[in-house]
Design a protein around this nucleic acid. Structure first.
Lengths: 334, 334
DNA sequence: TTGAATTAGTAAAACGTTTTACTTTATTGC
DNA sequence: GCAATAAAGTAAAACGTTTTACTAATTCAA
């Protein structure tokens, strides 16, 4: 019933707790424990199915082999895919991931940080939101490895991995223009984070470079956690503007709402109306016609995040902060 | 730098550690600590930002306020949605969720169970796979609350929450037949779990009840973790059979592969060819025409799971096991 | 007035590890 | 033959809490 402790093993093997601990932690050689004792203890451990209590271990060592992952919403496929990739890669290095969603709420984000802190996670991987700068700053000051991905907070000085949102957005608009589009709309959110701003800047710059005047009526900023029905209503209104011949959606869920609108108002994507969505989604490939998307390099993002985190975890001194910007890929479908 | 401990607070307040502990845990009244001391200590705690070390707490109390959630794959939208719902609901009751994916690997599942065990999670919510019966049995014998959802293991005697897969499948086929379909295919997986078997049984029974002969050539069992390209190839082969006038896909990712095939071979869904997918997905609503689906009652499943778990956690004695079967909803789209 | 009960609080053990500093015995070098 | 070194192992402190059992001072009841 009661689970075994190291003491039980020590008693069974007739050695001290210390000895068992050394063996468990692979320090037997270095601490000169005899081959015979090692074997005996290992046999007993294997037979009894003893597993060290990680909580006691964490309490003593101060680290947990757990990395905390804070994202906006696990049910968004962008995040769930990246979470899965990060989980896989961390797992292979002996780290576990705990993840939790902020739902874009500053309060929830702060609570999560506190929860992770009091659980002594070894590192934090965060897709941050505005308003938690202070909390992050404290983590950094306490010497915790913190890495941002997908989004960055300009005021905070830490490593970041993300796609090149500015260029991806720029290229999307450029491709519209190359197709001869003149009235290009942008549906984005009012979340005030760098990556969203960059997408917006790329949109503006591409227009400007092509001598197209920026028209504020063509930009729709959706409030970040309103009901989808309201979003749909607003997009419908935007599209009532018949001049619009192309739309860039700045996130996949906005694009999905947008596609629902198109279906409702029976507007077809084709030669005279084009759409590009940011962040791929299974629905886009299946859609008829296929929806062109800016595909974020999920695999590379996850790879780099883990690489940077592990580097920090294994080095005593804090390595230089790095900003890894990975090009996104524009996938043209039809 | 170093984070505060209860001792620091005690020193600052000039009281004993015990007193601080009582106050933190809301036992001050009951332990007759004076109002003045309570206030003083609470003020110091608030000002210093002290947060109890949950690890030490867990070590001492033996519970963690964490519930472990084991699912097949967090990047599958069915699981990520349900995870999100469970997370939300648990969170409101003061429980945190740690989740991790098994990827349908028995080894990984066992490892996860061990990891959760050594981290002393208070309860386990599992979408189980065949092959982990023994491990689950051990958890149960040790008195851990364990609840299955989505899938059940017949040999294990514990609570379960899931949709009524048999009837959902039966109704889907019945609706095909009502539309006059005669050659109805089933694309399913070879995972040997109850819910998949039930979907298959529902298919067979509906055919039988309508006097249609079961034709084994119309049933395709996809190996559960093969490459998608292979799956697509196999579905393509199946659909080479021109007689087929309806297909039920037993999971959402199979349906997605199926839709990709339809797109490739340019086969249209319409009067003479119908499709129903199990488990809804954003892509199905957006698809033109809309894809009919069996919608699992995610909200209710999550609700019931949490309700049962919390009931077990709050009662000393283990409550009766319950099997909660919730009707699924067939959504006809076009 | 005294013994019991209440109030206000504390000391110390316990949870299960890791790790430091130590002991004892055997081996080596000269 | 003896000091120094190596080999094999252990006792006990520490990590930060909770909780049990205790003390001391005050109040109460008869």
């Amino acid at each position: 019933m009661k689970s075994l402790s190291i003491k039980d093993i020590a008693v069974k093997a007739n050695v001290s707790i210390t000895t068992v601990s050394f063996i468990i932690n692979g320090k037997a050689k270095e601490k000169s424990i005899s081959e015979a004792v090692i074997e005996k203890v290992e046999k007993i451990i294997a037979e009894s199915g003893y597993k060290p209590n990680q909580i006691a271990r964490s309490l003593r060592t101060g680290n947990s082999n757990i990395i905390g992952l804070i994202i906006e919403d696990i049910s968004n496929s962008f995040f769930s895919r990246i979470a899965r990739l990060i989980e896989d890669k961390a797992y292979k290095k002996g780290y576990k991931i705990i993840y939790s969603s902020t739902e874009n709420s500053v309060d929830k984000a702060k609570e999560l940080i506190n929860m992770f802190k009091s659980r002594k996670v070894d590192a934090y991987i965060i897709s941050p939101i505005k308003g938690i700068e202070e909390d992050i700053q404290m983590l950094l000051e306490d010497g915790n490895p913190v890495i941002f991905f997908d989004r960055n907070l300009p005021d905070i000085n830490t490593s970041y991995v993300g796609a090149d949102h500015f260029n991806a957005s720029y290229q999307s608009i450029q491709s519209f223009i190359d197709q001869g589009k003149k009235n290009i709309a942008l549906v984005t959110t009012d979340i005030n984070v760098e990556q969203i701003v960059e997408r917006y800047d790329g949109y503006k710059k591409a227009l400007e470079d092509n001598g197209i005047k920026y028209d504020e009526n063509l930009v729709l900023k959706i409030h970040f956690n309103q009901e989808e029905s309201e979003t749909i209503e607003q997009i419908k209104q935007l599209l009532a503007n018949k001049k619009i011949d192309a739309v860039l959606f700045a996130t996949n869920y906005l694009a999905i709402s947008g596609l629902k609108v198109l279906k409702q108002i029976n507007k077809k994507i084709g030669d005279d109306f084009a759409v590009i969505a940011y962040d791929d989604h299974e629905a886009f490939e299946l859609h008829t016609p296929g929806i062109s998307t800016v595909q974020q390099p999920l695999e590379e993002i996850a790879e780099n995040v883990i690489k940077l985190i592990l580097k920090q975890l294994s080095s005593k001194t804090k390595p230089e902060n790095q900003q890894v910007i990975i090009p996104a890929k524009l996938i043209i479908r039809d």
